[in-house]
Design a protein around this nucleic acid. Sequence first.
RNA 1: UGAGCAGACUAUGUGACAGCAUGAACGCUUUUCAGUUCAUGAGGAAAGUCCGGGCAUCACAAAGCAGGGUAGCUGUUAACGGCAGCCGAGGGCGACCUCAGGGCAAGUGCAACAGAGAUAUACUGCCUGUUUUCGCAGGUAACGGUGGAAAGGCGAGGUAAGAGCUCACCAGUGUGCAGGAGACUGUACAGCUAUGUAAACCCUACCCGAUGCAACGUCUAUUGGUGCUUUAUAUCUUAACGUUCGCUUGACGGAUAUGAAGUAAUGACGGCUUUAACUUAUCGGCGACGGUAAGUAUAGAUAAAUUGUCACACUCGACAGAACCCGGCUUAUCGGUCUGGUCACUAC
RNA 2: UCCUCCUUAGCUCAGUCGGUAGAGCACUCGGCUGUUAACCGAGUUGUCGCCCGUUCGAGCCGGGCAGGGGGAG
Length: 121
Amino acid sequence: MLYTEKMKDNKNFLALYRRGRYIASKYSVIYVMPNNRPYNRFGITAGKKIGNAVNRNRAKRLIRLAYREAELKMPIGIDIVIVARKALCEIKSSEYSLYMMEQGVKEIARAIEKGIGNGKR
RNA sequence: UGAGCAGACUAUGUGACAGCAUGAACGCUUUUCAGUUCAUGAGGAAAGUCCGGGCAUCACAAAGCAGGGUAGCUGUUAACGGCAGCCGAGGGCGACCUCAGGGCAAGUGCAACAGAGAUAUACUGCCUGUUUUCGCAGGUAACGGUGGAAAGGCGAGGUAAGAGCUCACCAGUGUGCAGGAGACUGUACAGCUAUGUAAACCCUACCCGAUGCAACGUCUAUUGGUGCUUUAUAUCUUAACGUUCGCUUGACGGAUAUGAAGUAAUGACGGCUUUAACUUAUCGGCGACGGUAAGUAUAGAUAAAUUGUCACACUCGACAGAACCCGGCUUAUCGGUCUGGUCACUAC
RNA sequence: UCCUCCUUAGCUCAGUCGGUAGAGCACUCGGCUGUUAACCGAGUUGUCGCCCGUUCGAGCCGGGCAGGGGGAG
C-alpha cells in the first residue's frame, strides 16, 4: 500500500470506536477519524461472530482488497477501521469492492469533513 | 444380480488477467524503501488439546510420602493410554465386529422396593413325636411365591421326610502332568460350593520432577520507583530465612538494613524448519515395523500470506486455514475410485 | 499457548456416600373483597446439554462430544 500503515495497538482501536464517526452498511461498519499525520492508518476487525477461521480470513482478504483498490480516492491523514459483518463472507468480492469505490469513499469524505467541523467547535 | 463386511487411495481440474507472502537473481542507490524477472507457497483432518516424545529453562534436579496414570499375553517403537499378532469372553447364518479384559477364595462399605429370609434365615410346606382338635417340640430345605441375585445345575439312588448324603454328566476352585515365548489350552486327581459391585474405598504390578517457544538466547534505548548481581559499612548469629507445584528429608546459598556501581524489562533479531523427513526399489518379518541402496529439498508468517474476476470441462465441489516440531487418538466431512472376503438368489 | 469450573421446571437455585427430582418466584383453578392487590387452599410444569459404557438400576460413577463462564502468560 502506498501511503498507509497497519494499525496494531488495541488502544488506537478503542480510541477510534469512542471518538470516530461510523458508516454502517449490510456488510461492514467503517470507523474513521482524522489523525493529523502525512499517512493513513488502517485496521481490520473480524470478530468471532463472523464464523470460523476460514470465514474470518476471507472477510479480511476482501476488505484488504477493497481498500487497496479504493486507496487512491481516499483522503490522506485519517485513521480507518473496518469491522466485518456476517453477510460479507457470503458475497462475491466484486460486489464489496464496488460498494467501496462508489459509496464508501464518498461517505468517508463526508464523514471526515463533518468530523473536522466538530473538532473545530 | 442384490445385500452386507474389511482395508487402501483421493479431496474438482485447466487457462487468461489482476493481486499477496517468502527466497534468489537483476539493476538503482552510500544504505534503506520502492521496482523487474524467476521459483515456491495449507490439511486429511492444519481442528479438539485427549495421550506420548523431541527441544528449552528451573543453581543440583536427589530420596521418600502424597497425588496422577496404565491394567490378558507377546511383540513393535524415541515414546505411548497408539499399533500388530495371538489368548479369553460376548454378538452375527457368515465375511467380521466389540470388550477399562488384574484382584470381592486380604480387609471395609453398599445392595432401594419386593420377599419368610440379602449373607444369614424358616412364612407356606413336608416328616416324626405328642395331642380329641387347635396347637406345641424336634428334623428338614426338595416344593411355592419375591427379586438382578435365594448358597452349585440336572438326573438317578437313598430316606420317616429330606439333604453332595452317595453316584454319573456339566460349571467353578486347587494341585500334578503334557504342550506353548506367554496369556492360555488339554488331561488326571482331590476336597469343596464360594451372591453381585473395585468405571465403591482399597490391594497388587508397572510408569510419571515441574513449567512450556508468549519456553529460552543475543543485541539495544531510557533510569523515578521495583527486582537481580557485585562491592563497602553496620547488625544478627548457627538457628532462622530463601531455592525446586504439596509435605518430609537431603543438597545448595550465611541472613537483614543502608550507600555505591552494574544489569533486566521495551523493541529488534535468533529459536523457525534437514528431519525418529518424503519417494522408489529391494531384503527380513504372518504383521505392526526394521535394515540397505538410489533420489528429492517440499510453507515459515507475526493484525498474520494461497485470493478475486472471467472462460471451458465434468461426477457440480463437503468439512474446513499451519503459528516450535513430530508419533498417535478423537471429532467434522459432499462425493468418487480400487482391492480382498461373505451371504442369498438365478443360470451354466 | 495453557489451566480450571458450569449445564436440573418459564426464571433463580438445592439434590453428600448410586434406589422413580425438589424449594422460592412465576402460571392455572377456587376462596376472601363491592373490585384489584395482598392473603388462604389446591394443582400443573422436567429427554436432568447430547452420545456411549459400568451396574440389577445412573441427575450422581467412567469416557467422548457440544455450548457457556472464569483465570495465567
